[in-house]
Structures are given as C-alpha cells and as structure tokens.
C-alpha cells in the first residue's frame, strides 16, 4: 500500500485501522475516505459535463429570453423570440419538412436493415465479409459521406447519372440537384446507405440471443418463414428494434451535415431541416437569442419523441 500513500491518505488510514491516529471506529472514517475518493475520481468527468453541457444548456434557456446581438449588450425581451418563432412560416416549413424526411428515411431505413439482418443472420460462406461491407459506410462521417454522394451524383462528372442514362432509367444531362424531389431522394438514399448497417448490427445482436430450439420447434410445427418472422423473431427482438427506431428517428430528425454538404438547403430552400434553420439563425443571421429559442423548442421536441417512445414500449410490455 505504500506506493499509493501519497495519492490517497484517507484510504491508507482506513486500510490500517489499528494505526494510533485513528481514534474513531473504522467505518465512518472509511466511509469518508471513500466519499472523497469517489468525488475525486468523478471530478474530471463532472467538470467537463458542468462546463460544456450544464452551463451551455442553462445559457441556451437564458439567452432565449433576450435580444442577444453578437456584439453589444443583450436586452431582456421576455417571450418575444418564441412569439417570433411561432409566427415565422419558415420555421413551420422546416419542422414539416424534417418530420416528413424523418418518416420516409426511418421507414425505408428500418425495413431495409431488418431485411439485411435476416439475410446475413445464418452462416454462409463469406458472411463475415458481407457483414463488414454492409457496415463500412457507418464509420464514415456524414459530411464526407454527403460530399461523396455529391461527387457521385452531380450532373457533370457523376457516375450515377451516367449509369442511369446508360441503362435508360433517366434522361442524360439532367441535374438531379435542380429538382426538390430528386434532391431529397438522393439525401434519403445516402442516409439509408450510411445508417442501415448500424441498425442491422443492433438487430443482429438481438436475433443472436434467440435460442435455436424455438425455431426448431416452429419447424416441427410446420411454421412457414413468414409465421416464423412475425410470431417468433419480431416479438423476441422488440427491445433492440425499439432502440433502433428511437436512434433512427432522433438522429434523422437532427440531420444537418448531409444537407449542408449536398443541398445547402436548396433548391429554393426546399430542404431546410430544423437544425439547418437553427444554424442559419445563429450563424448566418447572427440572431443568437432567436436561435436559442429555436434550440429550446428542438430540445422539447426531442424530449417528447423520447418519452413517447418509452411510453409506447412500456404499454406494449404491459399488454404482453
């Protein structure tokens, strides 16, 4: 114990209860030492969280009640930022667009990843490589991935328009980023490509813990593939599946990088997400107080989504 005596004297005293300078009983002293050490060990993390999470979180709420210019003194204006927010049709549009984008991306992404998980669950030659390739896009950041798809689908040098034209699926020389529909479709495809592997892997961890005997019994009872899926696999992966849904919905709702790199919110502001709106308010219009109000609303929306999800899951559990 000598090597650490300098580091933590309280424990040294606690570990040597017979020492002459320990008049009290062993346990309170030990408890106090443990207390101090516990605090000391959590201190680095606690300081980080206090300075870079709690402080900015409090400040966001505080700022949202001010007219907060980048230079000069902030002036308190009550709920005016929130009133402005409610009356700005652009914000409503951003929310609606983000909800729509989230729904489309989540449904396609979750169905695809469920399909992928079922496909690569059994052993077959090359399974490990297939799984790794399906997952590889997950490790790439959204910004480089967005630029990558921009490079692949731009009208001039992109390989995808070229390929589609050669296969006769689309006319040649059309700029996909000029139309809101094709632009959005590209972002959805890119997001699904980048996230499906992660959802697949989470679902696989759930499927791997289903005992094989259950499937054997089902087989003996003559259950077909569809019955096996809906009656055995899906009910037994409810937990990872709801985690996947929560993760997909929340991360998609907060999308920014892929829109910033691929569409810049265009064409004609048709692809501005909520976070993009927040970014514009804070760092383009430099209206910090207003942006803070947007941020508070975003936090509330996310909290509602998370609570709704937990409620739904609990409700389902209670039914079962």
């Amino acid at each position: 114990m000598s090597h650490s005596a300098l580091l933590d004297p309280p424990t040294r005293a606690a570990a040597a209860p017979d020492a002459p300078r320990g008049p009290r009983t062993r346990s309170p002293r030990r408890r106090r030492g443990e207390q101090l050490q516990g605090w000391a060990l959590t201190a680095p993390a606690a300081v980080l969280i206090a300075l870079f999470f709690v402080l900015p979180f409090g400040l966001t709420v505080w700022m949202s009640f001010f007219d907060w210019p980048t230079f000069g003194t902030p002036t308190p204006i009550g709920f005016e930022n929130y009133a402005d927010l409610a009356s700005d049709p652009k914000f409503g549009e951003a929310v609606l667009f983000t909800v729509g984008y989230t729904l489309v991306t989540s449904v396609i992404g979750i169905l695809l990843s469920l399909g992928l998980a079922l496909l690569v669950r059994p052993r077959f030659p090359g399974r490990t490589a297939v799984r790794a390739l399906l997952f590889a896009p997950v490790t790439i950041g959204f910004a480089p991935a967005g630029l990558l798809w921009l490079a692949m689908s731009n009208a001039r040098t992109g390989v995808l328009p070229d390929l589609f034209a050669k296969l006769g699926l689309a006319p040649a020389g059309v700029d996909w980023f000029a139309e809101p529909t094709t632009t959005l479709a590209l972002v959805v495809v890119m997001t699904v490509w980048k996230t499906a592997g992660l959802a697949m892997l989470v679902l696989l961890t759930g499927m791997d813990s289903i005992p094989g005997e259950i499937y054997e019994a089902a087989k003996l009872d003559g259950a077909n593939a569809w019955t096996t899926l809906t009656r055995i696999t899906l009910p037994l992966i409810v937990k990872p599946l709801s985690l996947v849904i929560l993760l997909t919905v929340t991360t998609t709702f907060l999308s920014f990088d892929q829109f910033f790199t691929m569409t810049k919110g265009g064409p004609d502001g048709s692809t501005v997400t909520v976070v993009y709106y927040l970014y514009n308010a804070a760092f383009v219009s430099l209206d910090r107080g207003y942006a803070a109000a947007v941020a508070v609303v975003v936090v509330l929306i996310m909290a509602i989504i998370s609570i709704a999800q937990v409620r739904l899951q609990r409700g389902r559990k209670a039914e079962a």
């Binding site: 999470f53 900015p56 979180f57 400040l59 966001t60 700022m63 929340t250 907060l254 920014f256 976070v275 927040l278 970014y279 804070a282 910090r288 942006a291 803070a292 941020a295 508070v296 975003v298 936090v299 996310m302």
Partner: peptide, 8 residues
Amino acid sequence: PYPALLVS
C-alpha cells in the same frame, strides 16, 4: 441533442 447547445 448537442446541436441545440451550439448557439450558447
């Protein structure tokens, strides 16, 4: 969500 904290 941390994008919401970027302003502050």
